[in-house]
Computed example of a mutant assay.
Amino acid sequence: MDSSLVEQIVVKLRKECVLVAGRSIGCGFAVSPGWILTCAHVLNPDIKINDSVEVRLWDGVLRTSILRHLERDLDLALLEDFKVKSVNAVFGNRPRRDALVLGIGFPVRDHRPEFDEFTARVEGFTTIKYAKKEVDLELIKLKQGRIECGFSGGPLINMGTGEIVGVTRFSNDTQTDLGGWAITPESVSFFCFKVGVELNKKEGFTNDFEGGFFKPQTVERVRDLLLNLPGWGIKESRISFIEIALGRRHRILNEIELDGRPRQVAWSVARACEDYPELTESGLVPFCALLNTIPREFGCRPDRDREINELRILLHCVFPEN
């Protein structure tokens, strides 16, 4: 893309960035009408869902947003802000090695935040393994950029395409140009998809959660899991289970026929989880709500539990607390 066009995109994105005041100073930016994305670690550690968060616009105007969604493992948070009417941010695929990227944020200098930018190169990707979790987290590793405190939560822009390719997370050294790390666009897409916030994506965006996790083989495995549940062959039993898992008002219950042959019903439910991903009453997407409900309703069974855990990983489900 022509450099002048990229610069125009950056100018527009700057106007949609806000200073987020919490445990530290950070950045947030509009990702969908009514929604601002930032890093979870920027917020106060004791913050709760539905608490108020003060943000400051690029022109200095203060306003209050509300924390609606928080995922500390991904280090992401979504703030509801009804003042956000339109969005220029377009998410693209993760950047190639050595790609030039630009970050926007509010670095703190002389005890006061400044609205500024940094540039860096993509060095590669870092994988973080959580000791008590079965899924790993991948981050974009940056080099040749001075990432100071205050850039966390801000957009990372590919200077070759003008697309957002990540969210700045933390620095390797705030006093030097040793770079740092950023959250991948796939993680952002997964987080927003789970809570029903729609992102602007470049055509051809390769989202593993939408394009990879929902492979036909995965849907078939969910179907077979449902089909082998105790009582699935009895209409009343399977309807009761689905209502417990999804809630009686979920769209899936009105969109599919539940009194057909057991195998066809299991297939219809599995496909409907993909077609109607609206959050359930438990705050999960339907696939994950079903998987989390099975052990509660039918107890533990080693072979079935292994299958459930494998599907949870494929679908990036949140593992329930023990």
Rank of each mutant, 00 (worst) to 15 (best):
V11Q: 14
V122T: 02
V10S: 06
C17G: 09
V188L: 13
T64K: 15
R146N: 04
C288A: 05
I9F: 08
I9H: 07
I147Q: 07
E148I: 06
S189D: 15
G26R: 06
S3F: 02
W267L: 11
L258I: 08
C273H: 05
R301Q: 10
F91K: 14
D81I: 08
R68P: 01
E114C: 04
K201S: 04
L227Q: 10
S86V: 13
N228F: 07
R251G: 09
S282P: 00
E54K: 13
F190M: 12
K12L: 13
N200E: 05
R112D: 01
D305P: 02
G145Q: 11
P185L: 01
R312W: 00
L226N: 01
K143E: 13
T161M: 09
E236M: 02
K132N: 12
K48D: 13
I239V: 15
F205D: 12
F241R: 11
K85G: 01
W58A: 14
N292E: 04
S32A: 15
P295W: 06
W267E: 10
I47T: 05
I9M: 08
T161P: 10
K215E: 13
I242A: 13
T126S: 10
G299L: 07
R238H: 06
V122Y: 00
S152I: 03
G103H: 03
I242N: 01
P262L: 01
G211T: 10
V53W: 10
F106H: 14
W232R: 05
L246D: 05
C39R: 10
D2R: 09
L311W: 02
F209W: 08
P185I: 01
R96D: 14
D46A: 07
L70D: 02
N44G: 03
F118I: 07
F115L: 07
F125N: 01
F118M: 11
K48S: 15
R271M: 05
L246A: 08
L67M: 04
V53Q: 09
E255P: 04
I128N: 09
K133S: 15
F241N: 10
L100T: 13
I313Q: 07
G26Y: 09
F125R: 03
I252V: 15
N50D: 14
E278G: 11
D2M: 01
Q8R: 15
R261C: 00
E198R: 09
G231P: 10
P185F: 03
E278S: 12
G231S: 12
R63L: 04
E198H: 10
Y130F: 14
E220F: 14
L62W: 10
V87R: 11
T293G: 00
S52V: 10
